[in-house]
């Protein structure tokens, strides 16, 4: 069955069943492999994307549900917050193995868009759904603060 899916500002037509997790549609059909498979049950956050601006775990969202939303993946992440986060990640040397970082960045991006000056507690709450086995958490937290500060300076 064919579904229309709006991803990163483009309309895609996907021929698979509506029960398919969005994650596999993104990865195997649309070849958007920046979104990672890490656990398959919304435990690790490596597959985080945005649906209508809200962070969601694409491994646990069906294509049929996703088809009603605007989906944004790491490949389409743009705007001042995304740029500030990427710059902070590079400057801080946040990633180690890097596998979880797409998901970390998408969660951080949603946080920064909703809250331009997050506290440590806000960051802990927003990011506790994202695992990092390399334990880059302290640098992630610092990176989010850096990005928020950079955005604050700019505006």
């Amino acid at each position: 069955m064919t579904h229309s899916l709006f991803v990163n500002g483009r309309l895609h037509s996907v021929d698979t069943d509506g029960d398919a997790p969005l994650l596999w549609v993104l990865r195997d059909h649309l070849r958007l492999t920046g979104t990672k498979y890490g656990c398959g049950k919304a435990q690790c956050g490596a597959c985080t994307v945005h649906a209508d601006g809200q962070p969601v775990r694409s491994c646990s969202l069906s294509l049929a549900d996703a088809a009603t939303s605007r989906i944004e993946t790491i490949e389409g992440a743009a705007g001042p917050e995304a740029e500030a986060l990427t710059a902070a990640w590079v400057a801080r040397g946040v990633p180690q193995c890097g596998f979880c970082q797409s998901g970390q960045l998408m969660s951080a991006l949603a946080l920064l868009r909703a809250n331009s000056a997050p506290t440590d507690a806000d960051i802990d709450a927003a990011m506790s759904g994202n695992l990092c086995r390399c334990a880059t958490y302290n640098r992630i937290r610092a990176g989010i603060h850096d990005a928020a500060a950079a955005l604050g300076d700019r505006s």
């Binding site: 920046g34 990640w89 970082q101 797409s102």
Partner: peptide, 20 residues
């Protein structure tokens, strides 16, 4: 510093999982 932070902070780093 690490040289791979760019691709690893933008989803561009290719892992085995991403090979097509």
């Amino acid at each position: 510093r690490r040289k791979d932070c760019g691709p690893k902070s933008t989803g561009r780093q290719v892992y085995t999982q991403d090979i097509q």
